[in-house]
Simulated assay, not measured.
Amino acid sequence: MDAQGIAPFELYAIRYARHGGRKAQDNYIGAVDFHDADSDLEYYVWVARRGAEVYVIDTGFEEQSARERGRELLMPVKDGLALVGVAAENVDHVILTHLHYDHAGTLGEFPKATFHIQDAEPAYATGRCMCHPALRHPFNVEDIVGFVRKLYGGQVEFHRGTAELAPGLTLHLVGGHTPGLQVVRVWTRRGWVVIASDATHLYGNIERQIPFPAVYNVGDMLEGHKLVRSLADTPRHIIPGHDPQVMRRYPALSPETEGKVVRLDVPPNNPAE
Rank of each mutant, 00 (worst) to 15 (best):
L96P: 07
L96R: 03
G259R: 03
P255E: 02
D102R: 02
R69S: 07
L73G: 08
V54T: 14
N205K: 07
E89C: 11
W192S: 09
Q118S: 14
V261P: 01
G108D: 14
T114I: 15
I195L: 15
E157S: 15
A88L: 02
V94H: 07
G204L: 11
V86P: 04
A123W: 06
G224L: 00
E63C: 02
V174R: 00
P255D: 03
A7V: 07
Q182L: 12
D143N: 15
F34M: 05
H237K: 04
Q118D: 15
A13N: 02
L231S: 00
H116G: 05
A232C: 10
R185P: 03
I57F: 04
G51M: 10
N217G: 09
Y28H: 05
V32H: 07
A31H: 14
R149Y: 09
L41G: 03
L171F: 00
P133M: 07
L81I: 10
L173A: 13
N205F: 13
G20P: 04
G204N: 05
T106Y: 07
Y28G: 06
A17L: 06
D243I: 09
T234N: 00
A196P: 02
A66T: 04
L99H: 12
V32Q: 14
Q25M: 09
G108E: 13
L151P: 03
E72C: 11
E121H: 02
V228Q: 00
L83S: 05
A17R: 01
A196Q: 01
L227T: 11
G241K: 09
T162G: 01
A52E: 15
L171V: 08
R160H: 14
R229W: 06
A166P: 03
N27K: 11
M75G: 02
D233I: 03
A104C: 14
K260V: 08
F147D: 06
A252N: 11
P167M: 08
D233A: 14
R49S: 08
F147M: 08
I29L: 15
E223L: 11
H98W: 12
L222P: 03
A232W: 01
P211R: 02
Y101D: 11
E157F: 05
L96M: 08
P267W: 03
Y250C: 05
S197T: 08
V47P: 03
K260G: 06
V246L: 15
I144F: 04
V266S: 04
T200I: 06
